[in-house]
Amino acid sequence: MPHKCTRCGKVFEELSDDMLKGCPACGNKLFFYMRSAAAEELAGRIRVEGIEEVEDVGADAENASQTMQMPQLDIESIRILKPGVYVLNLEALFSKEEIIMGIKEDGSYVIHLPSLFKTKRKRKKEK
C-alpha cells in the first residue's frame, strides 16, 4: 500500500513505524494513500492540464460530461424526466422514508403522502 508525503512528495512503498513520527525527509505528518497508476496518472493530468482539456481525453472524460448533464437533485427522491426515464437520488431514498417526486425539470413536485404519514406514525410509535 504505497503512501506519498503531501509536502515533499516522497513515496513510501510500505507502511513503517517511522512514518508515525513523520516523513523522514521533511517531518510532515500527512500522507496520501496512492491508488492505481492509472488513477494517479488521471489525477496528474487534471492538475496539469485543467478541466477543459481533460474533457477531451477519452472515455473517462466522456462519462464525466454525461454525469454533468444529469439534473441536479435537491429535495426530491426521484425525478421523472419523461415516461420511462427516471433519475434517482439514492442518498434521499436511503435517508428519508417520505418520497418526493420531481416532474421534468420545471420545478414541479409531487409529495407521496402515504409515505409521509407512515413516517409520522412510526415516529409517534417510537415516542
Binding site: M70, G84, V85, Y86, L88
Partner: peptide, 17 residues
C-alpha cells in the same frame, strides 16, 4: 441500485418501447 434508469438503454436489447 442505479442513479438513472432510462428506457432507451433497454431498446438495444430488442425490447419494444
Amino acid at each position: 441500485l442505479a442513479t438513472k434508469i432510462d428506457f432507451h438503454d433497454f431498446l438495444a436489447y430488442g425490447l419494444s418501447e
